[in-house]
Design a protein around this nucleic acid. Structure first.
Lengths: 193, 193
DNA sequence: ACCTCACCATACTCTTGCGTATGGTAGCAC
DNA sequence: GTGCTACCATACGCAAGAGTATGGTGAGGT
C-alpha cells in the first residue's frame, strides 16, 4: 500500500523531487492522482512542505510537464535519430514503441487528460513534433509530400491507438512473441518497400 | 450558458431522460462532467428528482452506458453489415468513422475515462466486438488468420488514435477535402487489393 | 556556539459534489 | 372531488481536497 518511493531517505526535499514524484504518480495512476496530500504522504512529508516549494497544485503540474517534455524530446528521438537509412529508422522507432518505455507510459497517461488546460498544449507540441519526425522520414524514403503527411498521420494514429488499447484498456494481453509479430506486421504494412 | 436540452418542456421526467442527458454530457464534456446537480440544472429540475429515479450517481452512469452499448452495436455495424463485398464493407466503415457520428464521439469520450471501473468493461466488450468484426472481414478478403488479426488490430488502433488526435487533442484541423484524402489513403494502405 | 533560513508540521478554512430527510404538488383512478 | 403516488424542491449532513496561517527544527555558514 504505502510503498514509499524516495531514493535514499533524503532528509530534505527540493522542487525537483516533487516534480519527479508527480511524474511517477502520473505514470502509475494518471494525472488525476496528483493530489498534494497523497504525494506528500508518498514522499514522507506533509502538505506544509509542498506549499513552500510551489504556490499551487497547477504550478507543480506545469513544472512536471515541462520536465517531461524536455526529457521526452531526446529520449524518444535521440536514440533513433542517428540511424541513416529512413526505413531502418522508422522500423526501429516502431519496435521501441511497445517496450514499456517510461516516456510512452507517461505520454499515454497524459493522453487521458487532454481536457486539462495545462496538458493539452504540451501534448499538442510533443505530438506535432513526433509526427513531423515521421513525415520527414517518409519523405526521405521517397514518398510524395501529401502521401508522406497522410502516412505519418496514419502511423502516429496507430501508435496512439496502440498505447490506448494496451496500456489503458489492457485489452489484448499479447505475450512477447505475439507482440513482436504484430510490430513486424505493422512495419511491413506502414513502411513501403 | 444555460442552453437547456429538454425536447419539448416535458412536465415530468423518466429515468430514460436522465440517461440520455448523461450521454449528452459525456459526449460534450466527458464522463467527469456527469454531475447530478449540473445535469439536473440542465434538465430544468433539481437533484431531489434525480434521487427518486436513481439510488446513486454510479447507477445513472451504469444505465447510461448500457443504453449506449445497446444502441451502439447496431448503429455502427448495422449500416455496413449488409454490404456483401468485404473490401467494400471495410472501406465504407472507414469512411463513416470520421463523420462526427454521435456514437464515435461518445466512444472517444469513454476512451478518456478508461480508469473508471464502470467504463472499462463496457469499452472492452465494444472494442473487442468491433475488432472481431474487422478481423472477420479481413479473413473474408483472403488474409491468413494470424495476418487478419494483426491487420484488424492495426486498423482499430488507427481508428482509436484518429479519434484521440482529432476529437480530444484537436490537433490536425483538417478540412473536409483533406479529410477525405486521408481516409482514401488509409483505405489504400490498410485494405489489400 | 549560535543564528539563520530553508524546509516541514499542525491546524485550521473553503469549496465542491454526493447523498439524505422531509415536505410539497400535479396527474390519474374511482 | 378526493386520495394515492409518482415526481420534484428545499435544506440539510458529510467527505475530500485545495489552500492558508503559524509555529517548529535542523544543517550550514560565521
Amino acid at each position: 500500500m504505502l510503498h514509499v518511493v524516495e531514493k535514499f531517505e533524503r532528509t530534505r526535499l527540493s522542487a525537483a523531487d516533487w516534480e519527479v514524484g508527480a511524474l511517477d504518480l502520473i505514470a502509475s495512476q494518471g494525472v488525476g492522482a496528483v493530489a498534494v496530500e497523497a504525494l506528500a504522504r508518498q514522499l514522507g512529508v506533509t502538505k506544509g512542505s509542498f506549499y513552500w516549494h510551489f504556490p499551487t497544485r497547477e504550478a507543480l503540474l506545469k513544472a512536471a510537464l515541462e520536465r517531461w517534455e524536455r526529457q521526452d524530446t531526446d529520449h524518444v528521438f535521440g536514440q533513433v535519430e542517428p540511424i541513416a537509412d529512413p526505413r531502418e529508422r522508422l522500423g526501429e522507432l516502431f519496435r521501441r514503441s511497445g517496450r514499456e518505455a517510461r516516456s510512452h507510459v507517461i505520454y499515454s497517461a497524459l493522453l487521458q487528460a487532454l481536457d486539462h488546460p495545462l496538458v493539452q498544449p504540451v501534448m499538442e507540441r510533443v505530438s506535432q513534433r513526433r509526427m513531423d519526425f515521421l513525415a520527414r522520414a517518409y519523405r526521405q524514403i521517397g514518398m510524395e509530400r501529401r502521401q508522406a503527411l497522410h502516412r505519418a498521420r496514419l502511423a502516429y494514429a496507430a501508435y496512439v491507438g496502440f498505447l490506448q488499447l494496451t496500456l489503458q484498456l489492457g485489452m489484448p494481453r499479447l505475450d512477447h512473441a505475439e507482440f513482436d509479430a504484430y510490430v513486424e506486421h505493422v512495419i511491413a504494412t506502414l513502411i513501403p518497400a
